[in-house]
Design a protein around this nucleic acid. Structure first.
Lengths: 216, 216
DNA sequence: GTCTATAGACGGATAGAC
DNA sequence: GTCTATCCGTCTATAGAC
């Protein structure tokens, strides 16, 4: 197919893809992640991307199909990199935590909608791929990481805690502040620039906090 | 009005209200908090509550009005108790944190949809009452608490941190695990009973964790 | 590939009988 | 108070011209 070849050619040349298809996807991604499926109207997508309403169906057959593709990509972007990192045996747990915090805090600063999207996806989809695919690559390497955590817990002098606490706290400390960003800005009188600075600070702080949870 | 008196009578007798009005609200609360406004259809509410479609409009005039009432109630249930607690001067910060953890963890175990609802409300509503009402009662007493936190930070030997980190971590440690409950159950092979036990453990753990963040 | 026009389904709301 | 029937606006999706 002609247009497939064009796409491939652009990709090989590392050119940005400003095709109609891409414009639709960009607009749709913003709207879907911000407002969800039902709240987002096809007319909005068309308007925001500056294309004709009918073209959305031409390229993606239906709103649902477009949504599925975008959510798939969002999740891929979220997962990307975890697998490699978690599986490594040359890094200890704290080094992994530090890299994890660095990677995702940067990612979330750049894509503000992602945190809320990821968490509500996890929350509302017991059935979903993302939660279920226990046979995928991440699963194996995740176990390496969790075992490292378990080892640290086993070394605790008093009161060992369940690894789920540590995992949950780790994810929460990274992702949660982004979800209450509006509240922090309003109540703590923080502006956008300060908010980003605070999040950057956390890249160093989170490993320290997790360490103190594990070493008492 | 006759039906108002009936309502009152039931309330005075501490009887559960199984009126049609109540059945609609119960069904709608679940659907709205789980799926949001647009995603929830009036026909679903009717079906789930076993009532006729037209009755929703009879009692609440419109879907929007019903939504507003429910969200108001959700928020009230969330806010309830904070104001009193935060304003007290006979309790130190750690005692307040402990009571806060106790109160909300119990609340969230009983109402599983609340965490996700609260956070997405905060997230998506810079304009909303809940975030904006800086003149309300909670605001004043919140300041008492935040000042207590600031005092503790000031006592830190090295590297004082921004109070926003502490507040954000505190809220996150309490509420976040409920949002990734499905993930924990799936990945950490935790069943419902164990999940509740883990959450109960956190009532003691969170104050300790916050303490260690503040005392290093 | 892109556009206009419109078909066709869906969902919120109400009229009116009981 | 509760029900059936239905109206009507909104939205997705497609037919068909260019």
């Amino acid at each position: 197919m002609q247009f497939q070849n064009n796409k491939l050619a652009r990709k090989l040349n590392n050119e940005k893809d400003y095709s109609t298809e891409q414009k639709i996807k960009e607009a749709a991604r913003t709207l879907f992640t911000q407002k969800g499926f039902a709240e987002t109207k096809t007319r909005e997508i068309a308007e925001k991307s500056g294309i004709n309403l009918a073209l959305m169906n031409y390229y993606f057959r239906s709103k649902q199909k477009l949504y599925d593709i975008i959510m798939e990509e969002n999740m891929a972007s979220f997962k990307q990199g975890i697998s490699d990192l978690f599986g490594r045996t040359d890094l200890d747990a704290y080094q992994k935590i530090e890299r994890l915090a660095n990677y995702y805090i940067d990612e979330f600063i750049a894509h503000r909608d992602l945190p809320m999207f990821i968490v509500s996806t996890i929350y509302s989809s017991t059935e979903m791929d993302f939660v279920n695919n226990e046979q995928d690559m991440i699963s194996k390497s995740r176990k390496v990481f969790v075992n490292q955590i378990k080892d640290l817990i086993a070394q605790k002098k008093i009161k060992p805690i369940h690894p789920a606490h540590v995992i949950s706290n780790l994810i929460g400390l990274i992702i949660f502040p982004f979800m209450i960003g509006p509240l922090l800005k309003k109540r703590a009188q923080i502006n956008e620039k300060e908010f980003v600075e605070l999040m950057m600070e956390r890249r160093q702080l989170i490993p320290v906090w997790i360490k103190s949870m594990l070493e008492k």
